[in-house]
Design a binder for these strands. Structure first.
Lengths: 363, 363
DNA sequence: GGCGCTGTTGCAAGCGCGTGCAAATGCTGC
DNA sequence: GCAGCATTTGCACGCGCTTGCAACAGCGCC
């Protein structure tokens, strides 16, 4: 019986050599070097090669030396696709982002990719600028590549898709996407609280006619900032003029300035929902309306993008703790899922610290 | 013989069922759904499922319907890791980048990822901010994940590594990394020529005392801009004051302003190697030296980042054709490698068009 | 009815890897 | 010298997939 088995093995083996050569000739001239080839060159078994590159496996120093030698003579690199197939763990983490040319987004991507790499993982980037529903498409892509996790920086996936991801053992992180779905790990800022604190700052600077310049995007973070600001103002008996327009960019800031600065009772303090809006607002205020900031007008923003520190703006703003966000996200990915059954539905809330610059007088 | 073979097959099959259940129980509670399960539910063979999701394969409409139905009842998604293993083509393209929080870099990343997705590929992002040699590490990572190609936006890999990539059938694209290596596809700008054209523009604006504000980074693009500018000036008998400092960011611009604007013969036209440098330069010139731009000083930059259009800068600058760069890169990836043997050593040079804004008088 | 042809389908092999199991090896202590 | 043990090694299997090959079904035509 054993002999017969060996016989069929040999037969199929002979077949395979023929087949694979044929296929290789067709598909590509020279595929990547495999563990098999390394094993042959080192005069050991393929398992020995595999074990050499598997941390914690049992290999004698002598064998390891031979393998390593042969490996980098041939330029061998472990195939992470195959490894992922075996281990059911690809090491890939999918970042789902729109507007990634934007300063805040790109700095967040930078921080996250760096942290992922430090944790031995790798980022796969999916751009969801195009249409709606593309967040769902992106998550499907993540499933196809068997990403260990997906981190969503923009948009909001359909509930059915997130359930699909979770059912497939994919972990999900939502950043600033305030949502009450169970399952995903959610990282949020204290948007409303931060915005509330700003009212006091404006008051101390002697401002009384407050305005809020928002985008029409209507994401939870933006709305929380608006709510927090308006509520805190109302609490001390002040009304806030709220204006909303367009996306969250520079141009919107200019338009919002047009609207807010042409009112009969011109505001003396404006909180812009994002720094980009604030930059546009300030530029329009200065160059079109010849208003000097701060004396005549105080402005604050949110995100603390690099440009906020530029001396043309010197913008007082709330800092997005990008490093902390990235750290939280990656740390959670590293955690054992079954660790804390009580933490099934987990989320974290981080502070946005106010960075004082001269766009508000006093301080 | 056939019977005996079947027998051993059955035996090993029985083993396998036992083993795989055991492994699954240990490794993870619930793996992704496989083609096997879809096949069983649809009452067809596993090959039928595979063919259903392979474009151009022969499946009857009836079978396809049954498969698709079962597939999305179970939430099945083709495993691209396994598919990549078979086809020797992962669909992954590796982007190797440093400073990706920077406006120019992030907009390039945006364009490339979008184009890749349109071409049915997916971007893997590697951050090389950390140490030197990390470009090599990044390329090794690309090899491990069997990326079909790597696109290098920053740094310069060691020759031995690029050779390794090419030998492994990986395609390589170098963007603005002027280099004479054979093999990689190189996309470059006409940096020197563009810079040369700027001299004429400055002249027409009545400037005579030219300066070039460069970073110390010394990348080929930056040096080409410097060379082109200096050469064109010399050609018409003008000397250029060249100053170099630090990285290519805003802060360097400020320092360079300190140096160039405190000279006895203050320049009346400054070409900054990047827009970020230009922004820093302009801010320092205006706010520290109270120089008004353009009357007293003309400034130009390079990249046409978003901030260059902001009304605080209105910077005349050369536009990086990011969309065209991305298109060229992705188009080349799609090409059959054996198509044009003469084009083995291929490269492309794109124009950087001058965008006129008010930081230079006249126009 | 038999034949050839076309379009589908299932079988089985193998992509490169990790790993349980059993065999082999080396070493200690009596 | 040999039992007993610890360590290392090789074998073989399967992860989920694609695909060549052969078997097969359907069909028109002589």
């Amino acid at each position: 019986m054993a002999i017969v088995t060996t016989c069929t093995q040999l037969q199929s083996c002979a077949n395979s050599v023929h087949r694979s050569q044929q296929i290789r000739a067709i598909v590509s001239q020279k595929p990547f070097v495999s563990a098999q080839e390394v094993a042959e060159r080192a005069g050991v078994s393929r398992s020995a090669v595999s074990r050499t590159f598997t941390p914690g496996a049992s290999v004698s120093p002598e064998t390891r030396r031979k393998v390593v030698e042969a490996a980098d003579a041939l330029g061998y690199h472990v195939n992470h696709l195959a490894r992922g197939l075996m281990l059911n763990e690809s090491g890939i983490v999918c970042l789902i982002v729109s507007d990634m040319g934007t300063p805040y987004r790109s700095s967040l991507i930078r921080a996250v990719t760096q942290q992922l790499q430090d944790a031995g993982k790798i980022a796969m980037l999916v751009n969801t600028d195009r249409s709606d529903g593309s967040v769902d498409l992106a998550l499907r892509q993540a499933i196809r590549y068997r990403a260990d996790a997906s981190i969503i920086l923009s948009g909001m996936p359909d509930k059915s898709i997130t359930q699909l991801c979770l059912k497939n053992g994919q972990r999900l992180v939502l950043i600033n996407r305030d949502d009450d779905q169970e399952g995903p790990f959610r990282i949020n800022l204290d948007d409303a609280a931060a915005a509330g604190r700003l009212v006091t700052a404006f008051l101390r600077a002697g401002c009384r006619r407050l305005a809020f310049a928002n985008s029409e995007a209507g994401t939870p973070s933006l709305m929380a900032r608006e709510r927090g600001f308006v509520a805190a103002a109302k609490a001390i008996g002040l009304e806030v003029v709220v204006e909303r327009y367009g996306p969250t960019g520079y141009e919107s800031g200019r338009v919002l300035a047009q609207r807010l600065l042409t009112q009969s009772e011109r505001p003396d303090a404006v909180f812009c929902a994002t720094d980009l809006i604030a930059c546009g607002f300030m530029d329009a205020a200065r160059h079109q309306f010849s208003i000097s900031i701060p004396p005549q007008l105080c402005v604050a923003g949110f995100d603390d993008i690099e440009q906020a520190a530029w001396s043309s703006y010197e913008l007082t703003t709330f800092a997005q703790p990008v490093e902390a966000i990235a750290r939280e996200a990656v740390a959670w990915l590293g955690k054992d899922s079954s660790e804390n059954p009580a933490e099934r539905n987990h989320s974290v809330r981080l502070n946005a610290d106010l960075v004082w610059r001269s766009s508000i007088r006093g301080g």
